[in-house]
Computed example of a mutant assay.
Amino acid sequence: MTEQTWADQRKRAILAHAAAGEARRAAEVARARELLAGFVREAGERGIAPEELTAAPHRGGGRLRTGLRGWYLRADRSVAVGTDGEFYALSAPGGLRARLTGVTIEPSDPRLIVGEGGRDGESMPLAELLRRRLGTES
């Protein structure tokens, strides 16, 4: 095998591996979005009212207005589901302007394991967080 052939095969293998990883991630995000949509529907059916969502500043204390409504999924109010069915990580740069005018939080791609790759004890399956929020722990 020539060096060029080996390099071409290696490049194709790397591209195939990356494509497979992206397909797995897209499937995971799609499944997580289904869970979120089901949660929003069930929360509405159960009469669990959404609330104003606030974000924690990267530094300092207090909370920042976001203009979003939804349901917090963790006691520390770090992640939430919006009434739009989107997943939000509620952290933002602070500062005087943010405190006065609020902040814009963009939705994140949801994962089936929230906090995956974080510190020990901080990751939890999305389905479990949603069940707990609905009060249907199993």
Results as ranks from 00 to 15, higher is better:
Thr104Met: 15
Arg132Pro: 01
Ala56Trp: 12
Thr101Leu: 07
Arg74Pro: 04
Arg33Asp: 10
Arg10Met: 13
Asp109Asn: 05
Ala92Arg: 03
Val81Thr: 01
Leu53Asp: 00
Gly135Asp: 08
Ala89Cys: 14
His17Ala: 14
Arg10Ser: 03
Leu15Trp: 10
Gly118Gln: 12
Arg111Thr: 13
Gly94Ser: 03
Glu128Trp: 08
Gly82Asn: 03
Thr104Glu: 03
Glu3Phe: 13
Leu64Lys: 02
Ala30Val: 05
Gly38Ile: 08
Glu106Pro: 08
Val29Gln: 08
Ala37Glu: 07
Arg119Pro: 12
Ala19Lys: 10
Leu96Met: 14
Glu34Cys: 12
Gly70Glu: 02
Ala75Asp: 05
Gly44Tyr: 11
Tyr72Gln: 15
Arg131Asn: 06
Met124Lys: 09
Thr66Ile: 15
Ala20His: 10
Gly102His: 06
His17Asn: 14
Leu129Phe: 04
Gly82Ser: 13
Gly47Pro: 00
Leu35Thr: 01
Gly67Thr: 01
Glu86Phe: 12
Glu51Arg: 11
Ile48Ser: 05
Pro125Thr: 09
Thr66Pro: 00
Val40Leu: 08
Glu3Ser: 15
Met1Pro: 11
Thr2Ala: 12
Ala89Gly: 06
Glu3Ile: 13
Gly38Thr: 02
Ser78Asp: 05
Gly61Pro: 12
Leu53Ile: 02
Gly121Pro: 02
Leu53Thr: 00
Arg97Pro: 03
Ala80Ile: 02
Arg77Trp: 07
Leu90Val: 08
Glu52Met: 13
Arg69Pro: 07
Arg74Gly: 01
Glu122Gly: 14
Arg63Tyr: 09
Leu35Ser: 03
Gly67Lys: 10
Arg24Asn: 03
Leu15Asp: 10
Arg133Ile: 11
Ala20Thr: 09
Glu22Gly: 08
Arg97Ile: 09
Thr83Ala: 08
Gly21Leu: 06
Leu53Tyr: 00
Val103Cys: 07
Trp6Asn: 08
Glu116Cys: 09
Arg33Ile: 10
His58Tyr: 15
Arg33Thr: 08
Leu35Ile: 05
Leu64Asn: 06
Pro57Phe: 03
Asp76Tyr: 00
Ala16Glu: 10
Glu122Ala: 09
Ala13Lys: 02
Ala43Cys: 03
Ala23Glu: 07
Arg77Tyr: 05
Thr54Asn: 06
Ser123Ile: 14
Ala27Asp: 09
Arg97Ser: 09
Thr2Asp: 05
Phe39Gly: 00
Arg69Gly: 01
Gly62Pro: 01
Val40Ile: 14
Ala55Trp: 00
Leu112Ile: 06
Asp84Phe: 01
Val79Pro: 04
Arg111Pro: 10
Leu15Arg: 06
Glu3Tyr: 07
Leu35Pro: 00
Ala18Phe: 05
Thr104Phe: 06
Ala89Pro: 14
Leu35Gln: 03
Ala89Lys: 12
Leu96Thr: 07
His17Trp: 11
Arg132Lys: 06
Leu130Trp: 01
Thr104Asp: 12
Arg97Met: 09
Gly61Ile: 06
Ser91Val: 08
Gly44His: 07
Gly60Trp: 06
Leu96Ser: 09
Gly115His: 05
Asp84Lys: 07
Ala98Val: 05
Leu126Phe: 04
Glu22Trp: 13
Phe39Asp: 02
